[in-house]
């Protein structure tokens, strides 16, 4: 499958397996990702890659939840913080192009929920 979401997913499974092992979990219940709309990763494609990548792993029955993060900028000229569209990252107040993206390009494993047997 020629998509980079699969590469991202294989890394995701590696990380999830390591965390599950260190917590002696039986299986993974839920995986929560934070994906910025400027991360270059498409949540829908990530989810279909996950369907394949999870087979035979501790995450085989896990649910994948994706929190989509929209772009947010801080203007270095006037200091304004504001939401932005993916195609326009200028300052909405002064139209300056010297802005920093403070959210919207993340590709982060935020949280996993593990099922452990209680003794």
């Amino acid at each position: 499958m020629p998509m980079h979401e699969l590469s991202a997913c294989m890394e995701l499974i590696d990380q999830v397996e390591a965390i599950a092992r260190s917590h002696e979990a039986e299986r993974v219940d839920t995986i929560v990702l934070r994906i910025g709309s400027l991360s270059g990763v498409e949540p829908g494609l990530l989810e279909s890659a996950f369907e394949m990548a999870r087979l035979g792993t501790v995450a085989e029955h896990a649910r994948l939840r994706t929190e989509r993060i929209e772009p947010r900028i801080r203007c270095r000229a006037c200091g304004l913080e504001a939401d932005a569209g993916p195609g326009d990252l200028r300052c909405p107040a002064c139209f300056g192009t010297d802005t920093a993206l403070i959210a919207g390009d993340e590709m982060i494993l935020a949280r996993i929920e593990l099922l452990q047997t209680a003794d």
Binding site: H23, A25, M107, I108, Q116, T117
Partner: peptide, 26 residues
């Protein structure tokens, strides 16, 4: 997710782990 609990009556507990790993950290 209740069906994922063990059928033999012993309880499974859910632990949530907050991570902040970049997906492509390798």
């Amino acid at each position: 997710n209740r069906h994922l609990l063990r059928a033999d009556g012993s309880h499974a507990k859910v632990t949530a782990v907050s991570v902040l790993n970049k997906l492509l950290r390798h």
